[in-house]
Design a protein around this nucleic acid. Sequence first.
DNA 1: CATGTTGGCCAACGCTTGTTGACAAACGTA
DNA 2: TACGTTTGTCAACAAGCGTTGGCCAACATG
Lengths: 199, 199
Amino acid sequence: MNGSESLSSSPGAGAPRRSDATRGAILAAARERFATDGYERATIRAIAKDANIDPSMVMRYYGNKEGLFAAAVAIDLRLPDVSNADRRQDAGRILVEHFLDMWENNEVLTALLRVGVTNQAGAERMQKILREQLLPVARQVCPDPEQVPARAALMASQLLGLALTRYVLRIPPAMGLTRAEIVAWLAPTIQRYLTAPSP
Amino acid sequence: MNGSESLSSSPGAGAPRRSDATRGAILAAARERFATDGYERATIRAIAKDANIDPSMVMRYYGNKEGLFAAAVAIDLRLPDVSNADRRQDAGRILVEHFLDMWENNEVLTALLRVGVTNQAGAERMQKILREQLLPVARQVCPDPEQVPARAALMASQLLGLALTRYVLRIPPAMGLTRAEIVAWLAPTIQRYLTAPSP
DNA sequence: CATGTTGGCCAACGCTTGTTGACAAACGTA
DNA sequence: TACGTTTGTCAACAAGCGTTGGCCAACATG
């Protein structure tokens, strides 16, 4: 249910082309296929068919399959700022709620996780996103800079684990949890991983 | 059709066959390939090459690729009993330590997770294992039977999340955590998911 | 209008995949 | 020894893959 493209977002996006609609259709179809099928089973032919164009168009606009994937999974997590004192003690809840919003409205994340598990390039892209976007958040909250990577990794393990069981493996009891339950259970965990004294 | 007892080490296995060595080599190669490559990229040809036999042997002994996968990922988590009172309050630590032992010595688990993410049959097998093996453990510890599935799902989200970041995605800071650190951080989380009053 | 550029389809290529069937050697047994 | 079964190799199949290049219509510009 997401129509937002990354076109208008980047400044100096260049002159609009007549083929922008097609390019967008390809990206949308690619995101959906990568999210549901993973890298290998999301074939260019299937993506092209979804976008109602010829497979060769994909090659023309994105070079090859890897290029298409790279273009399809560019994402900004838009993680909230939790640096000031009163939000810092609420960081766990704020981050869990934000993650739920993100995962439920953006299939790029599912695509990224699904591909990252079986594809080296996907795994590296995932690492990059975590390093550039999640790590700074941990740095805002965590007192000792030396512990930031470890604490960010712990946070990632719980948040990605939830996404894995709920949105990828689709384990029934994980899908049955309500949003409120997830926040109530996970927020203290994240809060502890970020701010509790090292055990 | 043959009788289909699979492993020689299994008690009460059928008559030992001359081909048991080959069957074992195929299974070992399959486990390794599935664990590192996932379902689609683990080709029968590559597995056969690793096992030093012809691809057609794989078909003869395991029917097709799905049958091979099913045979390769049969696993017993051997989860410890935590039902008696004094172990119940230590369940978090005991389970985390057991999971680390399992993941570090058994590539079947990595194969299972990697395949479960992109393959429907793999995901269902994973669900079955969690339902039949992890759920009973939660039942031993958790007071209210009605909350057992939810609490087991929470436990699975944290344990699988750790495995995902550490053994599958291989995120550096997650790999850098020592065993002691992981136990110290995760044991209280698991303990809380299992025994804390519903928040 | 003439011309160059862009968007799109089509047919094909080289390759890899899972899978099959024919056939030869090794073996157990009568 | 003779014979049926098991274990293994080899060559091939049909299907699907990513990818390429040729061709034509639609557009933009002089």
